[in-house]
Nucleic acid binder design. Structure first.
Length: 945
RNA sequence: GCCGAGUUGGCGGAAUGGUAGACGCGACGGUCUCAAAAACCGUUGUCCGAAAGGGCGUGCGGGUUCGAGUCCCGCACUCGGCACCA
């Protein structure tokens, strides 16, 4: 690396000079607390100023031990540029960075090394802080935290208790304290689902009734059990292949007692409020699809032989006349009830699978289905099933239709049972073909249509006459009208009603892991959960000899989860006085998923040291509250990758809404504006053995790529150690300095687009900063080159159009074009040899958000005392935006045939005359009649002949 | 299959319906140097032409318009999400 002494130009802006400047300013910013943002109240209280507040957040990092590559800081640089720009606009900017520090990698490391996960995690945080500090990010260091800090865990647990101690009031459409539910039962305003009154219930029954309504509850239900990881997983953590997102182990559906959060109560609000936030449409759509709201009908099918009925959900009640059989999911709770004693006479062989009785066939089928992973269920799309031996009554026409069980019907969606309409549904069609079931079309198909038809058309075969005239007849109606008619009829006849179902399931919240927040829950002798009182929070993790859950063979579906905390006997047994004297309780031994901390961390930035509340209401209202009535409030700008579209971003919205309902926050949404940055990707190279070779040693020539003289194949994708294509920020700091690195990342392209890293191209950004430096500083002597000359008109024009453009680009986060405009200004000043203060001061100020260290250095060399952090961002003077002359384009039949330099305020007539006089235009017209002349003075004349 | 985003030079990318390719990389030529590197200056969509100038050109096929990368219709391909969701 060159040093200042190695070249004649001792004061050239080289990497080492940049490094000196950058470290010096970083130390000074720290010492002066330059980026500390004042709060309205509390320990960080100060003068919040007259400007707007602006709260920026990055999706906080997991402190991985692997270190950073150049892709990681992209979003952090972008938010830093926005924050620095907003400060120069006079805003009070809150920007800090915490660490999402619970999670599996640290626990796996701990299991392997025996070292406590906290030790490793904290050293990773230290290392990451060091790497990021070198970038010069303008964060308020007082507001940084990690989700593993005892103080943070305390409030995570406190929020859990808030959720545990509340229920969802469907009438008022909001969460309310559980005490109000108890009061409603006591007063008789509400009764238990079975109609029992509060007075009739015993103490335990009362508790079970209350517990069943909580927003955080224990429930035995089908969950994703992953024996390979030894834990259960949320739906969102299972891939579409039915494997764990972490570790890629098989996942099985098992009925287990686990903690859940009633996120489904918020389905409608989570969908509807997407309209009120400024988020990318793609993310909104992903959330809508994930919640999966569908409108339809619930239809009751009586099974007379069994003396009971089952409900199905359908989005197409208009096709009810085409329902020729019904299917229950194999796990449906009524399967046994519907399983007949013996096969009805004439049952086709295919329906029985050769079993002697329905019970044998059903239990064999259920056993096979239970042993399948979700992946196996998905891979095999051949329709299979068995007949239960029972028939159900189609309510619209009284037809007896056979009831099957089949694994193409899912237990978790709708009612876990369907009416099968082979004429209108491809899956039902396939099943009907396989089992010889009748197919009745109920919608007129287009000419020549084969197979199931799900499209528009008039209803056919859809009438049933009854003696009393109450029969349903929808023939001829369109799909929408038919749906409405059927729902009305079902409601009148007590056979069903219109309803809405959701794909979203309640959030499985417990994990059998060590490295997570313990639940603030104990169990009493009745085995019922009780919240640990606030003053005993946080419940801290005990030290244990072994951090691993009991894991199993990945394919061992019958294994049972066993959390590591269950082995810490001294911790599990605890004596507490919960108001009725000291008693022994048993602690909950599951831990929270690593989504817990990130579900509320935006709140803690606003009041990070508050010991009495998650955040003071004044601070929350100032930083997050709605600016005007009807707004949701929330973080002003949240930047991160799209990979959290349905995980973190859905959970965080849910928790925030609960806290809003309970009156703890004034904002209805956590993140008002969301921006997904793209990824920086990289090329990787493989040799003829398909082994990756070091990418930085590959040469490109003759249109091919070579490593040590041998041809290699190029691939495009992620940066990764195994791909041998990692480029680290540290390498960039050493070779160019942080400012060059920042400018390069911002100039590569639009922030939301992914693009390949190209180390060779970074030098362009360095050359740009060197040119800026050379405008102000003599490279040989280090003397200032700045003078007080007046600006010529052309320079004034370039300067002010640049100011105008850069401001617009900053407002809309178009940093790539902002950099391009600053380069153009710099190139202009270099070309005309202008180093006048009137030009270079605004240049330095505009550069400050992007290359803050260099800008601070030049600002002080311009004679200013303090930091330019709060110096005003330049404002364009409209008087200088208009150019002295503009190039007018003359088109003939839409093709450019001439250009004229004209005054900006030229009249249409004058311009037309000039255009028609242009020699090349005259030649193009070639004597033809002019039919029309379109004039857009002063930029364009279009001549039609 | 459904939903969403995209397709512009050798590469990353610019372009309120009005000069396509700003800015940067690379490449080519030059200055400086004993030489090289760095730095600086110039050229660079493509074809015809000595030049002036002209033809072609934003994935493909149509359309609207004086004028389309941009708007409309259809298609292909790439990427992302969901997927036996009734």
């Amino acid at each position: 690396m060159s040093t200042p002494d190695a070249t004649p130009a001792s004061y050239r802006y080289t990497s080492s000079l940049a490094g000196d400047i950058e470290r010096r300013w970083q130390d000074r910013w720290d010492a002066e607390g330059t980026f500390e943002a004042p709060n309205p109240v509390g320990d960080l209280a100060g003068d919040t100023g007259s400007g707007e507040k602006f709260f920026i957040m990055d999706m906080f990092p997991y402190p991985s031990g692997a270190g950073l590559h150049v892709g990681h800081p992209l979003g952090y640089i972008a938010t830093d540029v926005v924050g620095r720009y907003r400060r120069m606009r006079g805003d009070n900017v809150l920007h800090a960075l915490g660490y999402d520090a619970f999670g599996l990698p640290a626990e796996i490391h701990a299991v392997q090394t025996g070292e406590h996960p906290r030790t490793n995690t904290e050293s990773n945080i230290t290392n990451m802080r060091r790497q990021l500090r070198r970038l010069g990010l303008a964060h308020d260091p007082r507001r940084s935290f990690a989700t593993i800090d005892a103080d943070f865990v305390r409030w995570t647990q406190w929020i859990f208790i808030q959720i545990f101690e509340s229920w969802y009031d469907e009438e008022q459409d909001r969460a309310r304290p559980i005490s109000e539910l108890r009061a409603a039962y006591e007063s008789g305003e509400l009764t238990a689902p079975d109609g029992a009154s509060w007075a009739e219930l015993g103490p335990l029954e009362r508790r079970i009734l209350i517990d069943s309504r909580r927003l955080a509850y224990v429930d035995e239900s089908p969950v994703n059990w992953c024996p390979g990881l030894g834990t259960v997983l949320a739906n969102e953590e299972v891939t579409s292949e039915g494997r764990s997102e972490r570790g890629n182990y098989p996942v099985f559906t098992r009925n287990l007692r686990q903690w859940k959060m009633r996120i489904t109560a918020y389905s409608d609000r989570l969908i509807d409020d997407l309209e009120r936030v400024d988020w990318p449409d793609s993310v909104k759509n992903m959330q809508r699809n994930w919640i999966g709201r569908s409108h339809g009908a619930r239809v009751r099918f009586e099974v007379e032989a069994a003396g009971t009925s089952f409900d199905v959900f359908t989005t197409r009640p208009d096709t009810l006349f085409g329902a020729t059989y019904a299917v229950l999911a194999p796990e449906h709770e009524l399967v046994e009830t519907f399983t007949a004693e013996a096969w009805p006479t004439g049952t086709p062989h295919a329906w029985t699978t050769g079993a002697g009785t329905p019970a044998e066939a059903v239990s064999a089928y259920r056993a096979v289905a239970a042993a399948k992973t979700d992946l196996e269920r998905q891979e095999n799309k051949d329709k299979t099933g068995v007949f239960t031996g029972s028939y159900a009554t189609n309510p619209v026409n009284g037809e007896q239709i056979p009831v099957f069980i089949a694994d193409y019907v899912l237990t978790g969606y709708g009612t876990g049972a369907i009416m099968a309409v082979p004429g209108g549904d491809q899956r039902d069609w396939e099943f009907a073909e396989a089992y010889g079931l009748p197919i009745i079309p109920t919608v007129q198909t287009p000419e020549g249509w084969e197979g199931a038809y799900a499209g528009e058309g008039p209803a056919i075969n859809s009438a049933h006459a009854t003696n009393d005239g109450t029969g349903l007849d929808i023939n001829g109606l369109g799909v929408e009208d038919a749906k409405a008619a059927v729902i009305t009829w079902l409601q009148q006849h007590g056979a069903g009603e219109g309803t809405t179902t959701y794909r979203l399931r309640d959030w499985l919240f417990s994990r059998q892991r060590y490295w997570g927040e313990p639940f603030p829950i104990v169990y009493d002798d009745f085995d019922q959960p009780i919240a640990v009182p606030d003053h005993l929070l946080p419940v801290e993790l005990p030290d244990v000899p072994d951090y691993s859950p009991k894991t199993y063979e990945p394919d061992d579906a019958d294994s049972e989860p066993q959390p590591p905390l269950a082995r810490a006997d001294d911790w599990v047994r605890v004596t507490l006085d919960l108001g009725d004297g000291p008693r022994t309780y048993r602690r909950e031994t599951n831990t929270m998923p690593n989504w817990a901390g990130s579900s509320w961390y935006e709140l803690r930035y606003t009041d990070p040291h508050n010991a009495d509340r998650i955040t003071d209401p004044e601070n929350e209202k100032y930083w997050l509250g709605p600016r005007t009535d009807g707004e949701t409030g929330g973080v002003d700008l949240y930047v991160g990758g799209v990979e959290h579209a349905v995980l973190h971003l859905l959970y965080a919205r849910f928790w925030h809404k609960v806290l809003f309902d309970l009156g703890h926050v004034t904002s209805e949404e956590p993140f008002q504006k969301l921006f997904n940055q793209g990824y920086i990707q990289a090329y990787a190279f493989k040799d003829e053995r398909h082994v990756y070779v070091e990418a930085d040693r590959v040469e490109e020539r003759d249109g091919g790529f070579f490593f040590e003289g041998r041809p290699v194949i190029r691939e495009y994708g992620k940066m990764g150690k195994s791909l041998k294509n990692i480029v680290t920020p540290d390498e960039m700091y050493d070779a160019y300095g942080a400012d060059t690195f920042r400018v390069y990342e911002m100039s590569m392209g639009p922030l939301d687009v992914s693009r390949p890293w190209d180390t060779r191209a970074v030098v362009g950004s360095q050359r740009f900063l060197q040119r800026v430096w050379r405008l102000l500083v003599d490279e040989d002597s280090g003397e200032s080159l700045v003078d007080d000359a007046e600006l010529d008109p052309a320079t004034l024009h370039v300067l002010h159009t640049t100011i105008d453009g850069v401001r617009g680009d900053m407002e809309h986060m178009r940093f790539n074009t902002a950099v391009a405009k600053l380069i153009e200004l710099t190139n202009h000043l270099t070309k005309v040899g202008v180093s006048a203060r009137a030009a270079v001061e605004p240049l330095v100020l505009m550069l400050a958000p992007l290359a803050p260290h260099l800008a601070e250095e030049l600002w002080s060399r311009l004679g200013h005392e303090g930091s330019l952090t709060h110096a005003p961002f330049p404002v364009a003077d409209p008087a200088h935006l208009a150019a002295d002359s503009v190039t007018c384009v003359v088109q003939v039949l839409g093709k450019v045939r001439g250009k004229i330099e004209v005054s900006p305020d030229i009249s249409d007539e004058e311009l037309t005359a000039l255009a028609l006089a242009e020699p090349n235009v005259v030649r193009s017209i070639d004597g033809r009649d002019i039919r029309k002349v379109i004039v857009r003075a002063p930029k364009l004349v279009s001549i039609v002949v």
